[in-house]
């Protein structure tokens, strides 16, 4: 019996010693806000503060508030505070959540798009605080589209888990358009170049110059009247009794032009991508 009492007393003493230091802190703290952990016990102890992007270790006095500096909790996530005294350690966990929205990261795709294409442009905004933590509480992100001509269009979209996004149809007129996003005092801007769609009403004409036949297009435009970009390839195909010959020429300054040797009767047609134009019937060298 005395042995049992001694054993129980020892166990009780050990239990008291193991739980001698108790550390308490808030469940959640805003990033970059100083606060205090509270502890019981007395004497000197070592405090470890382990966070997602930092680890600190310092001597503290037990029994009083243990200050945690604003700079120690700038990164959002789970922190573990541990105090160790005389071989016994006690811990407390808390979460640091993002501060107010003050930075944006904006992804806009694509950087070049054809006019009048439905849902062709997407803009995704990631909302961060000043410490680069993703702000998980909903924030209103204002997306703004500023075309080359005409008034700007805005659309407000609340973020979800720090992300807000929109999809847009490209304008009917070619030219650069600015796509921006703003939250609080932060804003980001990207430029999307809208280019003409496929050629429309592709037409060719021919002319003889110094005994050579030149075939050229009228200014190549899409159905909205936008100039098809220089460099777009136009294919001229000549069909005569010798067979079929195709010559590709890029558009330069709005038109494509080629020289085509012709002997006898020939038919010349034109195409750009999937679009075909008119046909010309020409006869022999002059």
């Amino acid at each position: 019996m005395p042995r049992l009492i001694t054993f129980l007393s020892l166990a009780l003493l050990l239990a008291i010693r193991a739980h001698g230091v108790e550390l308490r802190g808030p469940a959640q703290v805003k990033a970059g806000s100083a606060f205090s952990l509270s502890s019981n016990g007395s004497g000197e102890a070592t405090l470890y503060l382990v966070g997602p992007a930092s680890v600190s270790k310092r001597k503290v006095q037990l029994g009083s508030g243990i200050p945690v500096e604003a700079g120690e909790i700038e990164h959002a996530g789970r922190y573990v505070a541990i105090v160790c005294s005389g071989g016994d350690c006690s811990s407390a966990n808390f979460y640091v959540f993002a501060s107010d929205a003050s930075k944006l990261s904006l992804l806009v795709h694509p950087s070049r798009v054809r006019v009048a294409t439905p849902n062709a442009i997407s803009a995704v905004a990631f909302v961060f605080d000043k410490f680069h933590n993703l702000v998980l509480t909903p924030s209103d992100v204002e997306f703004r589209v500023t075309p080359q001509q005409g008034p700007a269009l805005t659309h407000s979209q609340p973020s979800s888990n720090g992300v807000a996004w929109v999809r847009m149809t490209s304008a009917t007129k070619e030219g650069p358009t600015k796509i921006g996003a703003a939250v609080a005092d932060a804003s980001e801007l990207r430029v999307v170049r809208q280019v003409a769609s496929d050629a429309c009403n592709l037409r060719i004409k021919s002319e003889w110059v110094s005994g050579k036949l030149f075939v050229q297009t009228d200014p190549v435009r899409d159905c909205g009247g936008n100039n098809v970009p220089d460099g777009t390839v136009v294919s001229f195909t000549k069909t005569d009794e010798a067979g079929k010959t195709t010559v590709d020429a890029p558009i330069k300054r709005g038109i494509a032009r080629v020289e085509m040797p012709v002997s006898g009767e020939a038919r010349i047609d034109v195409a750009s991508g999937v679009v075909t134009g008119n046909e010309l019937n020409v006869a022999g060298a002059r």
């Binding site: 470890y48 382990v50 573990v80 541990i82 992804l107 795709h109 694509p110 849902n119 997407s122 995704v124 990631f126 979800s160 888990n161 720090g162 992300v163 996004w165 999809r167």
Partner: peptide, 22 residues
């Protein structure tokens, strides 16, 4: 939970079970 229209970013939620030793 989110995959951007252009396929250039994906957001996920992870429920992890871990043992952490310091």
């Amino acid at each position: 939970i989110f995959y951007s229209p252009a396929g250039d970013a994906m957001q996920l939620r992870d429920r992890a079970r871990v043992e952490i030793q310091l």
